[in-house]
Simulated assay, not measured.
Amino acid sequence: MQVDRSGILEISSRVRYDMLMENHMTTAQAAQLIGCNDSRVRQLLKSGKIIGRRVGRDWLVDRTSAEAWRDSDRKPGRKPATVETPEVKPKSKK
């Protein structure tokens, strides 16, 4: 780290990266933490169920958000379909 003439602290790109990654993780790391694959993590990010940020073409997942999702009480698998069954009318004899 360096201080310029105005007294503003300049932070190197490596230090900024380390500070960012302290609270964030890659989709692969989040997938391993949650117990799913990285495409599911991207789905959760896009739907807003976990928090992250897009950096270029990659996602950085907020660590506390991924941990909260992992610890949440949710049922595995798809939700059952709620399809209304049409009323069946008996055929009339002619």
Score class of each variant (00 low, 15 high):
Thr82Val: 11
Pro80Leu: 15
Asp71Val: 00
Arg74Gly: 02
Lys46Tyr: 05
Asp62Ala: 12
Gly35Cys: 03
Ser47Asn: 12
Gln29Trp: 00
Asn37Met: 03
Ala31Cys: 04
Arg5Asp: 14
Pro76Val: 15
Leu20His: 08
Asn37Ser: 04
Ser72Lys: 12
Arg70Cys: 01
Ile50Leu: 00
Leu33His: 10
Asp73Cys: 05
Arg16Tyr: 08
Glu22Cys: 02
Gly48Lys: 00
Val15Thr: 13
Ser72Gln: 14
Ile11Phe: 05
Gly35His: 04
Glu22Asp: 14
Thr85Trp: 06
Thr82Tyr: 06
Ile50Ala: 00
Ser72Val: 01
Ser12Val: 03
Met25Gly: 05
Thr85Met: 13
His24Phe: 15
Val15Arg: 07
Ser13Lys: 13
Asn23Glu: 13
Gly48Met: 02
Ile34Cys: 08
Arg42Phe: 00
Gln43Lys: 12
Gly56Glu: 07
Thr27Asp: 00
Trp59Ser: 01
Thr64Ile: 08
Thr27Ile: 04
Trp69Gly: 00
Asp62Met: 02
Met21Cys: 11
Asp71Ala: 15
Lys93Cys: 04
Gln2Arg: 12
Trp69Asp: 05
Val15Ala: 09
Gln2Trp: 06
Leu60Ile: 03
Gly77Asn: 06
Glu22Val: 01
Trp69Lys: 12
Asp73Trp: 07
Asp4Tyr: 01
Ser47Gly: 08
Gly56Met: 11
Pro86Lys: 07
Met19Cys: 10
Leu33Tyr: 06
Asn37His: 09
Thr27Ser: 15
Gln43Asn: 09
Val41His: 04
Lys75Glu: 14
Met1Gly: 12
Arg70Trp: 03
Glu87Ala: 10
Arg74Ile: 05
Ser39Glu: 10
Lys75Thr: 15
Ser47Gln: 08
Thr64Ala: 15
Val3Glu: 10
Lys79Glu: 14
Gly52Glu: 11
Thr82Glu: 12
Ala28Phe: 03
Val61Gly: 04
Ile50Gly: 01
Met19Tyr: 02
Arg54Glu: 12
Thr64Leu: 14
Ala81Val: 10
Asp71Lys: 14
Ser6Asn: 14
Met25Asn: 02
Gly77Gln: 03
His24Tyr: 15
Ile50Ser: 00
Arg42Trp: 01
Arg16Lys: 13
Asp73Thr: 14
Arg78Tyr: 09
Ser39Asp: 06
His24Lys: 06
Asp71Gly: 09
Gly77Arg: 03
Arg78Cys: 04
Pro80Gly: 05
Arg53Ser: 07
Ser13His: 09
Lys49Phe: 00
Gly48Ile: 01
Glu10Phe: 09
Asp73Ile: 10
Gly48Gln: 02
Ser47Pro: 01
Asn23His: 11
Met1Trp: 07
Arg42Ile: 11
Arg78Leu: 11
Ile34Pro: 07
Gly77Glu: 06
Lys49Gln: 08
Ile8Cys: 08
